[in-house]
Design a protein around this nucleic acid. Sequence first.
DNA 1: CCTGCGCCTTGATGCGGATCAAGGCTTTCC
DNA 2: GGAAAGCCTTGATCCGCATCAAGGCGCAGG
Lengths: 222, 222
Amino acid sequence: MALAHDYTDVQYLPIPPKGADTAAGLFRLSVSMTFAKDEEIYGQDEDADLIYRVLDGAVRTTRVMADGRRQIGDFYLAGDIFGLEAGSTHRFAAEAVRDSIILVIKASTLRSSGGDVGRMGWEATRRELERAQEHVIMLGRKTACERVASFLKDLSDKSGDLRVVDLPMGRQDIADYLGLTIETVSRMLSQLQASRIVSFCATRRFRIVNPGGLARLANQTL
Amino acid sequence: MALAHDYTDVQYLPIPPKGADTAAGLFRLSVSMTFAKDEEIYGQDEDADLIYRVLDGAVRTTRVMADGRRQIGDFYLAGDIFGLEAGSTHRFAAEAVRDSIILVIKASTLRSSGGDVGRMGWEATRRELERAQEHVIMLGRKTACERVASFLKDLSDKSGDLRVVDLPMGRQDIADYLGLTIETVSRMLSQLQASRIVSFCATRRFRIVNPGGLARLANQTL
DNA sequence: CCTGCGCCTTGATGCGGATCAAGGCTTTCC
DNA sequence: GGAAAGCCTTGATCCGCATCAAGGCGCAGG
């Protein structure tokens, strides 16, 4: 298990991010921190008085059962907000998938403000809820192939790049997100490549060859 | 599919609910409506300008894939608030599990109010998110037996009754909530009864014989 | 360069839960 | 009360994914 972050590299942001970014306003008073690959950002059951935003890198939220079974709640990429999923304590831990820069702000600052800022927090929570519900559909009723296809499609939808997409996470993380084993994920990826749906230029970088086919396999209901 | 509700039985509530109920304040300006068993309260993809609270009965939210696979998002019992899960349109439909009385209020009334009322809406959304995440763990990493045990335990935790719990929903609804088939749910229930964990006095009413054993089987991580 | 380790892929086999099938029970409606 | 339909249970069989096993590949460090 990674050591708790020692908070020595906290630094105040000199300049607020651009105005075009709606979420940026929330983080005007935030501090920036860096986390190494696999370092813990917060732990399961820790107090939840901070809210986070990925500036660069990637983050996963995880929950581990007593016998070691692990479920990943979600992945967060540059621009995403996380840490909202909590009552008084976090129910998932958060870890850096790779070296990352994270903006941090006190939750109480947000929650207490009634106007625009508070509503933005609510909006962010609502988006989290939508993603969690999409995840429920995936885990409850989709086949292994549909899950992997959905995952690749979601990732490509999120990344602005037209056709070539980077996977920030390893196969085990994908498996723990999709409720599968690493072997099944690997097999499905090979299968998608064999069917000319996608094409891997490297282990963690692929191109979508047949977007229509991918969408059909993903079987999104919306 | 149930016909859309015709809204003819709308009636204004003469008296606000008791002050002890924190959520009640939100629904001071609500109207009460009744829905028959299996009647649709709102549809998938419908506009989301209303928020709902169960006064009596039970509600399920569902999503159906093109080929008929169905996933239940959650169940709502007396006192629960639902309908928050939406951006501009509902991503799940909501249906009455049995004859139910539902309070309805305009979402815009809530969202626009800055102070306490708005914060209560945020809190309700946050609780929804927590439940959805618990659901993700269940569907992603729990066995059929653990899912059914968790389900019975959650239900008993929600209902104030000490030992005897009523199931408002049928086996198919349980299966579609747990990501299983009706046959597997039935087998697991029989198995739990055979192991003296629970005891069914009727098809939809059971008693918890061994609460410790049930909790152990449920394998909750928190 | 070579070596070693971590990550990934691929193959063989097993098992948990789905599917298929056949009643039993319970509720509803006449 | 009797008939019919819907809901639930139980058994037999099948299949998709997990598990077990054996390398392959690529990257880091010597």
